[in-house]
Amino acid sequence: MTAQLDLATVLLLHKSSFLVGAFCFLYARWQSPRDEGLGILASGFLFLALASTLAGYGEQKLLPPYLWTLSSFTLGIGGYALFWIGVRRLSAGRRRLADWLALCVPVTGALIGLITHFQVVNYIRASVFNATAFLFLAASAVAIISDRSREPLPARAMLAAAMAVGANLCLAVVIGLIKPGIVPITTTYAFFLSIICHFAIALFALVLVKERAEAALRRSADTDALTGVGNRRWFLAHLPKSSWQGDCLIVMDLDHFKRINDRYGHHTGDQVLLAFADLVQKNLRRGDSFARLGGEEFGLYLPRTNKAQAFAIAERLRRAVEELQVVSNGQSVAVSVSIGLTAASGTERSWEDLFNRADAALYAAKRGGRNRVASDLAPAEPEPLVLSLDRAS
């Protein structure tokens, strides 16, 4: 198969792969509202396409050797430097000014070329170029994998693999130029395989952007826009479908919240909701689920927790809310919460039964004067038990 590969055709396809990748990145950048490094990736591929074009003209004797060797070398290294910067931004999702120091590599290479003219010697120029490409591609693969724990998207593994294969192809070219015969692959065949890698890199980079957008939509659908905690849909989805015996459900309602809105304004009401949600989140245990169910009502699911433990947790939260300081327009806003809890006995037919019992306990806490915790009793007993406390609001 190696003998059937024509170098001129391979170089044309090599350049075309960069152009196609660049246009894919530009289209995705146009469609994406976020700056995810796609524009920089497109610039890197365009630089590499231009470098490949100049090299092709040079091989056809259409340009002076000194001109095309230096320009194609500098543009090619610059393209890989831009590629690495774009990958870093794509992977991390944020700008890092220090990444632009990578452009010092092509600038330094151009200066050395102007002084020493090393680029005129083909095997030296090709060796240095492919060695640098290997380093940038390998570093890009590491960057993609390193951010996987923060954003575990499936496309990361495939994108990193495509970059790793491309890096190894560049390394194989370097070894083949320095020690011919050691690597069982010709430079022409390595260029051919790298074309596939370029398409794969462009493909999986776009898939990564698509997966990220879909994950953001799922988070948006499951997250309360104001407080940032889960919403009712998310909360219900995270409750176990069965075998909830030994778990507890807590429903909380901020006291006199309408009065806060009427007296201080809705902006202050939003501040109260944010402060309350933040306080509860800071007191969650591993495995607990907390969400805003609607308005000023919140839910808390406590797995593997008996009623006594749940009561202690609820009382600790109640006291913390009572001490919460929310200041609006120089005025301190008093905040308190009524809490109803119930424990699953295993006889419930659905979570609706538990919610009804927790709601009944919550209403008992409100009837008892608010700012207190109430627990439901056995079904035969007429009224939930209310824990009376010093201060009621």
Score class of each variant (00 low, 15 high):
Gln4Ile: 11
Ala8Tyr: 11
Val10Glu: 09
His14Gly: 09
Lys15Asp: 03
Ser16Leu: 15
Ser17His: 06
Ser17Ala: 15
Gly21Lys: 08
Cys24Ala: 15
Leu26Phe: 12
Arg29Lys: 10
Glu36Met: 12
Glu36Gly: 11
Gly44Gln: 06
Gly44Asn: 08
Leu46Phe: 12
Ala49Trp: 04
Ala49Ile: 08
Gly58Cys: 10
Lys61Trp: 11
Pro64Met: 07
Pro64Tyr: 05
Trp68Ile: 04
Val87Gly: 01
Ala92Asn: 06
Arg95Ala: 11
Trp100Phe: 13
Trp100Leu: 08
Ala102Cys: 12
Ala110Phe: 12
Thr132Phe: 00
Thr132Pro: 01
Phe134Gly: 00
Leu137His: 01
Ala141Arg: 02
Ser146Gln: 13
Pro154Gln: 04
Ala161Glu: 03
Ala162Pro: 01
Met163Trp: 05
Ala164Tyr: 02
Leu171Asn: 00
Val173Tyr: 01
Val174Tyr: 00
Ile175Leu: 14
Ile175Cys: 04
Gly176Met: 05
Ile182Asp: 05
Val183Arg: 04
Tyr189Ala: 15
Ala190Ile: 06
Leu193Tyr: 13
His198Met: 12
Ile201Pro: 00
Phe204Ser: 08
Leu206Phe: 06
Glu211Trp: 09
Ala213Thr: 10
Arg218Met: 12
Ala225Met: 08
Leu226Ile: 10
Thr227Leu: 08
Gly228Thr: 10
Val229Glu: 02
Asn231Ser: 10
Arg232Leu: 07
Arg233Gln: 12
Gln245Cys: 11
Gly246Thr: 09
Leu254Gly: 04
Ile260Met: 09
Tyr264Thr: 07
Gly269Cys: 08
Gln271Met: 15
Val272Glu: 05
Leu273Cys: 09
Leu274Trp: 02
Leu279Arg: 05
Leu284Asn: 08
Arg286Ser: 13
Gly294Gln: 05
Phe298Gly: 01
Gly299Cys: 02
Tyr301Asn: 04
Leu302Thr: 03
Ala308Asn: 03
Ala310Thr: 05
Ala312Gly: 02
Glu322Gln: 14
Leu324Ile: 07
Val326Met: 09
Asn329Cys: 05
Ser332Val: 12
Val333Asp: 07
Gly346Asp: 05
Gly346His: 05
Ser350Arg: 11
Glu352Asn: 13
Phe355Tyr: 04
Lys366Asn: 01
Gly368Ile: 01
Gly368Arg: 01
Ser375Leu: 14
Pro379Ala: 15
Glu381Asn: 09
Glu383Gln: 14
Val386Lys: 04
Leu387Glu: 10
Ser388Asp: 13
